[in-house]
Simulated scan of single mutants.
Amino acid sequence: MKFLVIALVILVTISVFRYFRQRTFLKTLTETQFIEGYRKAQLIDVREPQEFNSGHILGARNIPLSQLKHRLVELRKDKPVYLYGQSEFRSARAAQILHKHGYQDLNQLKGGFKKWTGKVKRS
Rank of each mutant, 00 (worst) to 15 (best):
Y82K: 00
T30R: 11
Y84H: 05
L4P: 04
K121T: 15
L106G: 02
S87A: 12
I44W: 00
Q33N: 01
Q22M: 09
D105T: 08
S54W: 01
R23Y: 06
G59N: 05
H101V: 05
V5P: 03
E48Q: 14
G59L: 02
V46T: 06
V73K: 13
K79N: 08
P64L: 05
V120F: 09
I57G: 10
L11F: 12
S15M: 12
K69C: 06
R61G: 10
Q86W: 11
R18P: 04
A41E: 00
M1F: 11
Q96S: 13
F89E: 13
R93N: 13
A60P: 13
S15F: 09
Y103E: 05
V73R: 09
A92D: 13
L109K: 02
T24P: 04
Q22F: 10
N62F: 00
L106Q: 05
Q50N: 10
K100T: 12
R76V: 12
S87Q: 10
I97T: 04
L11E: 09
E48H: 06
L65M: 14
L83M: 02
V120Y: 07
R21P: 05
H56G: 08
V120N: 05
R93C: 09
T32I: 14
V73W: 09
R90K: 10
V12M: 14
R122Q: 11
F34H: 07
F113C: 06
T32P: 03
K79G: 08
G102F: 01
Q67S: 14
G85N: 06
H101S: 07
L43G: 05
T28M: 10
L65R: 08
L8A: 14
Y82N: 02
Y82C: 04
R61T: 09
I10C: 10
A7S: 14
L109G: 00
K121S: 08
L98C: 13
Q42D: 02
Y19S: 10
V120H: 01
Q22V: 08
K114L: 15
G55I: 11
N107L: 03
S66E: 15
E36H: 08
L98I: 02
F52L: 11
D105G: 03
L83I: 03
Y84G: 01
Y103L: 03
A92P: 14
L68P: 03
D45I: 04
V9M: 10
R90H: 10
I63A: 09
F34L: 03
K40C: 07
V120M: 07
L43I: 10
Q33I: 09
K40P: 06
L65Q: 04
T13C: 13
F3E: 12
Q42G: 05
K121D: 11
V12N: 06
L72R: 08
